[in-house]
Design a protein around this nucleic acid. Structure first.
Lengths: 219, 219
DNA sequence: ATAAATTTTTAGGTAAGACTAAAAAAATAT
DNA sequence: ATATTTTTTTAGTCTTACCTAAAAATTTAT
């Protein structure tokens, strides 16, 4: 069945909100991410339920059916492949690609995505370290852990981010915290849980707990 | 001012229909290309006129204003650059790219098109030989002439096509009539104006006047 | 020049996807 | 346990872009 742009965006949002919980996703949470009003969300959830892409019961939140999940994953796959293209082939920085990929993810062509995937050398992570779902709708787990959970004195490598807001990514870039950066944790301050770290053996810097939570590393 | 997808398509269609004539473009002609009804076209023309993109007077047809033309050319520029990408980088054939480019042409990002243009090596023709408008909205003339206008015994090179319907392009491909093919006109049959030609020095073949009209060559 | 045919426009409606305001249900606090 | 607050839903509109049917203008044919 055909999916409209609005429907695809809702499914993607519901998917994202479902990742952390096995509860139904609340109307308000969806409204916030969709940048719309709760009343509009209710409307749309009813429509998505009719089409069989979500399970929705009044006041009980919403969850994706297998077919809804499949659609969401195909949008995410397209989004992430296009991000790889934008960074690897067109030379964008990792903080610049999100908006453009939001548009490109809705282009409809099976063959296009297959050929793009091949052109990019079948990448399995996007420029933010997020796994790219496979063609048959399987997505690898996020195997990396937040920097905030690494112990003092340990070494690790920056493999991804848990948040791709441009302001956050720009901060990381400014601190030389790029994909693949070698990080040594010198000290964790118990007061505010901020970290003193060394990036690529340069002079030590401080990062807040909030930042560390959103940096994903391989120990 | 922002342009919706529908508006962009109308402007593009009006541009195309204006290319051959300096008359206003008729409502019906637009309706046919837009695959919609004349009444819907009238609605839209009034809206486009309010926005200052077309000059429209009841029963008098429509023509683009400079700002409307600028929008149309930017859509055409995007369409053709994406076609180059699809053929040159992703390995599509020239008869497969039109539909996908119809979607990609509406992606909105100045920087994306600049970077794409650069990535492709600043091409000035698309895979069908059509000129790509420049960033500031200038489009080179179609400098090639139809094969149907070349004299007997002359040699020429296939530089483009005047029609990009898939069935036509597939026929050309089957006849080995690809971009750059060397064509020698052996004979023009006065009865039906069909041509006997030789392609890349292979065995002679016949093509109809209709086909010859839509093949663009450099003498 | 008038009649017939065609094209174009107007009028009135529909569906998608958003909105506001008000009502209803659920969650939280006293 | 009841009152208050918050969340969610319903009801009623709006805009965009399309539709059909009928009216009006234009073009073509006689």
């Amino acid at each position: 069945m055909a999916t409209s742009l609005a429907e695809e965006n809702y499914l993607k949002i519901i998917y994202r909100l479902s990742e952390n919980t096995d509860q139904g996703v609340s109307t308000n949470a969806v409204a916030e991410l969709a940048q719309t009003k709760a009343a509009s969300v209710t409307d749309m959830l009813q429509k998505l339920a009719e089409k069989g892409w979500v399970i929705y019961q009044k006041y009980q939140g919403v969850r994706l059916t297998p077919s809804g999940q499949k659609i969401a994953l195909s949008i995410i796959r397209k989004h992430r492949l296009w991000e790889v293209f934008l960074v690897e082939k067109l030379g964008y920085n990792w903080d610049e690609v999100h908006e453009i990929a939001e548009q490109l993810e809705h282009i409809e062509s099976e063959s296009l995505i297959q050929k793009l995937d091949e052109f990019l050398g079948f990448p399995d992570r996007d420029p933010h370290g997020d796994p790219i779902p496979t063609r048959d709708g399987k997505m690898a787990d996020q195997i990396y852990q937040p920097l905030s959970e690494i112990k003092e004195k340990m070494d690790c490598v920056l493999m991804g981010v848990a948040k791709d807001a441009a302001v956050f990514l720009q901060l990381l870039t400014k601190l030389d915290l790029n994909l693949g950066a070698k990080i040594t944790i010198l000290e964790i301050n118990s007061f505010d849980r901020s970290l003193q770290i060394q990036v690529n053996s340069a002079a030590p810097i401080f990062v807040s707990h909030e930042v560390a939570k959103n940096i994903l590393v391989k120990a």
